[in-house]
Design a binder for these strands. Structure first.
Lengths: 235, 235
DNA sequence: GTTTGATGTGGAAATTGTACACAATTATGC
DNA sequence: GCATAATTGTGTACAATTTCCACATCAAAC
């Protein structure tokens, strides 16, 4: 078999930053690393890419192996390649980020796997450069969510406008006027109002909405400017 | 030396998509590949990453070795990892894209290196998945230029508003109202009007402007909405 | 001094974004 | 059963931004 001569071959890993939303707070899914070095330390979901699999295949496989998740939102984020990022051996790390509805997967994650959800501002120390990856992912999430309806990936099928606002406010650590917020969201045509109400949070109850998936696909690439006064926020 | 056991190590290459603007048209810098396979075929600037260099170092080195360019705008674009993308041996390709002022580097590129500029819509067949890389880079350029003042990286130090508009119109294959365009650009505070005029294109001459670099750094991350009617454009 | 081709500028109308306050609902406790 | 309290849902006035549109200016070339 002919190969390129005189070049160094390197390990390539995929690391997944998995964000979830429990209705109140944004969370990050972490795992205790199962092998040395840094075994038992908290880490992103990661694994080496295999000879015959594409990057997307690898990230989906790793997500499935370590958490059981399948068919969730997964997007390539950035490639990290500092020579010393893994002390054992040079490894290129390709970061993917994923958005999921926590409740949908709560059980399987807790039961079968040793993954655990952490509040986004209570993330423990992570191995290698994983904290930098998380920071990059948070920035990307804030950036993209300001323009595109990406946050619906974090919500259950049925959700309320106050929940949605809660999510946006959490992500930008800001408060938005609810009249303007709901008008803006409704004007996108992305929401379909349901007949029933969510009654846990208030006596009056809040109408459920579902996502209009056709609109979602059509408008995903448009600039929708979900965030008011973006100049005043840190994206 | 301890290493990870039982994992496959892979070649990792960096490929640079280099855009230039000659005052009239957007162009792409290509090189004739110097080794087999596909020697003499047109290719992006690429090379394997070396054991001790970071990804950014590698892309800068490759740019310098193949074109002499240094200190230009360079941004990581995406990682391409289909198993069969290089027929000789599996190689991960990390694409970077770069924006330069053609005229500033015209001589050195032509003299010392075998690189050549192609009109963006007359790009020849490229090796491997390089055409896909170019398409991805074009999309990213259109996306980012709609929001951030990135296109100034393509212009010489002194430029005119009609040149600038020409560039935007080329990138979006659209025409913009020049009154609105110049008002919008001037309102950003990014432009400093010079005393002298560019006289080649008209009898009247057009004022030169330079970039206000302080404003440029400050506002680079803001959403500046350079593009009118973004809904009607393909980004 | 007339022609010509590109440059530079302003104002009206429409749209979008922002600020702001009060009524509706119903479980709860008295 | 009635007042309370917590949360939801909605409208209007004003400001800012975006869009649309047309004419005067300049200087080289003739």
């Amino acid at each position: 078999m002919i190969r390129y001569f005189g070049q160094t071959r390197i390990l390539v890993a995929v690391d997944c930053i998995i964000f979830g939303f429990d209705g109140d707070h944004l969370k990050l899914l972490l795992i205790q690393r199962g092998f040395e070095p840094e075994a038992k330390k908290w880490s992103l979901m990661g694994g080496f890419i295999q000879p015959e699999e594409s990057l997307a295949d690898a990230s989906n496989r790793i997500l499935k192996e370590l958490t059981g998740l399948e068919g969730v939102y997964l997007e390539q984020l950035k490639c990290f390649g500092a020579p010393e990022r893994d002390p054992i051996e040079r490894t290129i790390g390709i970061a993917y980020f994923s958005l999921i509805d926590i409740n949908k997967y709560q059980k399987q994650i807790n039961d079968k796997y040793h993954a655990e959800w952490f509040l986004l501002n209570e993330v423990p120390k992570l191995i290698f450069d994983h904290e930098e990856m998380v920071e990059t992912a948070k920035r990307q999430l804030r950036y993209k969510a300001a323009l595109h309806p990406i946050l619906f990936e974090l919500l259950p099928e049925k959700f309320t406008i106050p929940q949605l606002q809660n999510l946006y406010e959490g992500i930008y650590a800001a408060t938005f006027d609810k009249r303007n917020f709901s008008r803006k969201l409704l004007s996108t045509g992305l929401l379909i109002r349901q007949k029933d109400k969510h009654k846990e949070n208030s006596k009056k109850g809040a109408f459920y909405y579902t996502l209009n998936k056709t609109q979602y696909k059509d408008k995903f690439q448009s600039f929708l400017n979900f965030v008011p006064n973006p100049e005043s926020l840190i994206l």
